[in-house]
Design a protein around this nucleic acid. Sequence first.
DNA 1: GGTCCTGCGTTACC
DNA 2: ACCGGTAACGCAGGACC
Length: 815
Amino acid sequence: MEINFIPIDYDYFDYQGRTYAKIIGRTDKGKKVCIIDEVPVYFWAILKPKLLEKKIRQLQEKIERIKVESANRESKVLKTEVHDKNFLGKECKAIKIFITNLKDAHDIADKMGFDEIEKRREYDLGYVTKYILERKLKPLVWYNIDGELITDNELGGINSIEVDDVLKLKTIKLLEKQPEFKPKILAYDIETDEFEIGKGHILMISLVGENFKKVLTWKGKDSKKQFVENFKDETEMLEAFVRYVKEQDPDILTGYFSDNFDLPYLRARAEHNQMKLNLGIDNSQPSFSRGRLLTGKIKGIVHIDMLRFIQIVYSQYLQSETLSLNEVASELLGEKKTEWEHKHSSKIKKHEWEDYFEYNLQDSVITKNLAEKIWPDLQEFTRIIQEPLFEISRDSMSAHVENYIIHNLERFNEIAEKRPTHEEIGDRREEGRFEGAFVLQPVPGLYSNVIFFDFTSMYASVIVSYNLSKSTYSEKEIPDSVEVDLNPKAYFSKKPGFFPQMLAEIIKKRKMYKQEYNQKKDTLSKARSNAFKLLANASYGYQGFFGARYYCLPAAAATAALARSSVKDAIEKIKNQGYKVIYSDTDSIALLQENKTKKQVLETLEKINSELPGVMELDLEGFFKRGIWVTKRTGEFGAKKKYALIDDKNKLKIRGFETVRRDWCNLARQTQNKILQLILENGNEKQALEYLKKIVKQIKLREIPLEQLLIRTQLKKPIEEYKSISPHVTIAKKMKEKNIPVNIGMLIEYYIAETNEKKALVRDRAKMPDEKGKYDIEYYLKNQILPAVENIFEVFNVNTNELLDGKKQMKLGEF
DNA sequence: GGTCCTGCGTTACC
DNA sequence: ACCGGTAACGCAGGACC
């Protein structure tokens, strides 16, 4: 039978010693279908150069005799073939070794310690990756599939899984016209009495899908809400949850922080109540793999923890200071949810339960909206990198880069490099650091007509332009190469390597889809452009990352070194054209327009671009009517990574200042922001100074609400591990004593209060927000407000310290 | 008891 | 363990006088 099919989830199973792929997807008629398929599995033995044919044949025979036995199967080599391949850009002869079961590839490879073999490779690729490579049945791409319906008890009863049809694949054909795919998304969220997994009851579970809204609970017998469904106890509620998930039959089950909270909690409570949380299409329970973080997997339904994907892919582009559902949703969706003050169920009053149900439902509604908003990005990442959605939603950026490489090696006839061993990782981490970016020390001041240039995807374009990669690198001087002045010197062949070539394509596609987006303003080209941009930006970090298959520290060091010299060259050229360069950081250059016209500026840019190597490109980032740079708090020099700009539309761009640092109190941040705004709008400090005086007075009169004075600092490790006990650690200890849950990653809130005895240490004056106390006027003036503004006023030779003198008078009773 | 310096720790920039 | 280096700066803690 023939169907149009889109693969969503990939899995595999063993039956009678053989491995089968099991792909779950949808048909264009909306049916959920499982495809069963088989591909030959193999790995490679790369041979030493110049082996005689006879030798190779003898070796093949030896290899073909290898067998390994494990508890439940015997695995052997099925056949071997000799191929001309490339490994790390070099031509080689390699034996392709076909085996019965991929799981035994390691053991078979271990038995191949023959002299003629230089390296064994690709025994460490996962089955699903191998399957996608081999069959070219790529995730989230439409295919026409011809398959045979499995109706009997074949393959150990595979047809009993909960899908519409199970098909054994015969042939696949890529569909020319790719229709839009909208997955069925079901969002869920639980509310519990305790934060520790499984410790307390699950009070309620919300489920939200298309035209489907439910809150399942055993606490809702008095509820008048339509969406609330009441059950006898927790067990019945959990059973109903499983039932509803199956009934809804989603492609994606999504939660927020659900890998590490909701799903493991559900599993733990099911266990506690001696029932099975059989969510899988084969009635299996969710499984959890342990890395540093839990990962929850459900067979046949893609479980996606939205937080993971947002953390990895979006967080650097978000303004949100925490990645809480509330903050992220309000930034990405413009939705604010109503707050609920968490308390134990025994303390919830009757009428409050209704609000609690509403709150619980809302979390799932928001999570679903978030998933729909982010879907284009998830989809495009999946299509571009060609790994399953489940992995794409959780993998780190380095894994994305690596998977992109692996799925594109075939065009280069390349055999994949292996993953580093623990020892190799250890050695790599010992290798030490290399010099990074160049940052130009600014001269403090208020400047008019500031222009910013920046290099587009600078590191990626350096890698491409200078061909920097593991396969092009040489320790020793080689013909037709570029020498990079590192210690020791590094040489990179001019013959294009596969990684720089792939990266060149990534950059090209980024450019193409960005242009397409600028014309069409559609979500698809935006998501594509975004995915390629992120891949390009992660490429430099990838080559310097100790866990990478294609780790190459000299390539990373050379990338940084050539980026430094490129930016310095550009600065010199700009200066030679008669401009003053006032600042530069990594890939950007700030210069003053002064008496030049915009046309002249663009000509300068053009000239520099014409002289840049390869795909490197200097771009006009923007014109700003004013900009301010300040001194460091210690010393006379200009502070790096701290400046503020304003454009013609009075839009501010603030970098590095306390305004953008979440570990300063809101009052200091807002005051500084306002002062920067007034100065940049007016071009002088007059109004800003008046504003500051007003704020100082309000502080002294205790008119500032405590919320404005709270300092938030993240707890980054267990309390006991801190060598230096700073205020937030002290508060975290206090919270723990009071049985308030304290987790790693939490933002600890506190304020600094006055004390009777004059204690020197800040931490001894730190109090929790709900602790009684008067805020310490002197602390907030001297340690928050003044430090945030004094360097700014110093630009105008205004000494803000004088404003503080009022505090003595206050103590004398002036206020 | 004060001053100075250093290291820890967090958060930013790119 | 899950991409890199550069940088600012508060606070604690110890050296030193």
